[in-house]
Every structure is written in C-alpha cells, then in structure tokens.
C-alpha cells in the first residue's frame, strides 16, 4: 500500500514529467488511460470512492442488461437481431460448458456466463475511445482468476475428497516418474491463477498501450497517415483479441472446472 505523502509526491512527479516530455515535442502517455481516478473531485481513491472503474463497470452492466434482458423482452419465437445475439451468446457458453465439463458441469453455467459476459463486455466497452478498460487491471483479473481457482479447488475436494489429489498423481506414468510428475503438476496447478489473470490483463493493457503509442506518433505530420493506418490495424486486432481473451478465460475456467469434477487423468 502506498502512503499518503508518497501519492502526493507521485502526482508532483507526473506533472513534472508532463512538462518534460512536452518540451521534447512528442507526447507519450500510453499508460495514462489506465489510471484509476475519482469521477467527482480530486481526492484520494478509497475503497468505496466512485471512480472511473465504477463508471465503466456500470456501463458494462448496462450493456449486458441491454443485450440479455431488454433484447429478449419480447421472448419472440422468431428472434429480433438483438435477441439472436443474446441467444447466440447463451448457446455459445452453454455448449462450451457442456462440451468441456460434461452434463454435471451445466449447473455452474450461470457463474461461467457471468464471467464471460463481464469480460467480453468490459473488453469491448474498453475499446471505445476515451474509455477505461477495467479488464486491463491485474487487480480485476486476479480477483476473477483467484475466485475461479479457489472455487475449483474447494469444489474438487468437496466432490471427490482426497481423490482430488489424483489430479497430481499421473497413474499412467511409470512409478519412478510419478513423484517428479506430481511436483510438476502441483507447480503448474498453482501457476494457473497467475497465468489465467496475467494473460487477460496483459493482452488488454498491451494492445491499448500500443494504440496510444501510435497515436502519439500522429503528432508528427509526416508520420501521421502511417500512424492512423497503424492505429486502425491495431484496433482491428484488438477487437479480435478482446473476444478471444474473453473466450480463452472462459474456456480455461471450464477446463479447471472439469478437473475439479473429474480429477482422474
């Protein structure tokens, strides 16, 4: 935790660095878009402060509400466009859960759907110019990854008891190799939440930062057209990445859940 004087000093440093870079001509602030700041006033960011995080998570909720509740309010047998997108999302995740975890995993479908809808909407909403990408923060993705990790681990022990440890004991390998494999398996198991969270946050952060860097180059007239082309290309890539990362996070959650429900190799 950063102390109060430290924060004050940091703000001072930021101001100073701004002045410094403006002198140089090119202005690069690729990381400024990720700064968490209060929406009202300029006070410190406390736990319950209403910040841009609140705003953009609220917009994410509204987006999900609009798609899945307002879009389906007519319950039409022949769906409207919005309703078919909602149904598509439902069918996509439902089938994923069913295919990966099996029939007994379907009762966890609402939780996985919640994760997917949040990530995919936060990613896409974060692509709007001037927006704030909540999923680019490790704090957000780490909480989700840890939640998945803890839930899956607890569920594994509740459902299978000590049998869950069979996940680490590769019974198909030669006996001599098994302890080594078990060690590797255990390490890889505990690395899961780390890779799970950093993959999403890293992808979102990197893409957005790269766009910002290209945008900084647009200040030079000679490079500006190239810069705009590069921004457009990166943006297209980011749209793809936004969906793919949401998909990857969700399917990995399903895979971990499958391990908890059926730990045998």
């Amino acid at each position: 935790m950063m102390t109060r004087p430290n924060r004050a000093m940091m703000r001072e440093l930021e101001m100073a660095s701004e002045a410094h870079t403006e002198e140089a001509g090119l202005v690069f602030h690729p990381m400024d878009q990720f700064i968490v700041k209060p929406l009202f006033g300029d006070g410190p960011v406390g736990m319950f402060t209403i910040t841009n995080v609140t705003l953009w998570m609220g917009i994410t909720i509204l987006g999900i509400f609009a798609l899945l509740v307002l879009g389906t309010r007519r319950r039409a047998v022949i769906p409207t466009r919005t309703q078919s997108i909602g149904e598509l999302a439902y069918g996509f995740i439902y089938k994923m859960v069913e295919d990966v975890t099996g029939k007994d995993g379907v009762k966890y479908f609402p939780y996985i759907m919640t994760l997917f809808m949040f990530i995919v909407f936060a990613n896409f909403v974060g692509l709007l110019p001037m927006s704030f990408t909540t999923t680019s923060h490790i704090a957000v993705t780490a909480v989700m990854a840890m939640a998945v990790f803890l839930a899956v681990t607890i569920l594994g022990f509740v459902k299978n008891g000590a049998g869950f440890l069979g996940l680490f004991w590769v019974s198909s390998a030669p006996l001599a190799l098994r302890p080594i494999l078990a060690l590797i398996e255990i390490i890889s198991y505990f690395v899961r939440p780390v890779s799970h969270s950093i993959r999403l946050a890293g992808n979102m952060m990197a893409g957005h930062a790269v766009i910002k860097v290209f945008a900084g180059f647009a200040a030079i007239t000679a490079i500006a057209p190239l810069s705009i082309v590069a921004i457009t290309a990166m943006y297209g890539l980011e749209v793809l990445v936004s969906f793919i990362q949401a998909y990857v996070f969700t399917i990995l959650t399903c895979v971990y859940l499958k391990d908890a429900l059926h730990p045998a190799h």
Binding site: M2, V36, G46, H137, V140
Partner: peptide
C-alpha cells in the same frame, strides 16, 4: 504502470 498502484486495488476489487 497504474496497474501496480496498489492504493487503487481496494477500490477496483
């Protein structure tokens, strides 16, 4: 990196 500004973690979480 604002991502590593731990003072905002509580808020985000």
């Amino acid at each position: 990196m604002p991502q590593l500004d731990f003072s905002t973690f509580g808020n985000q979480i």
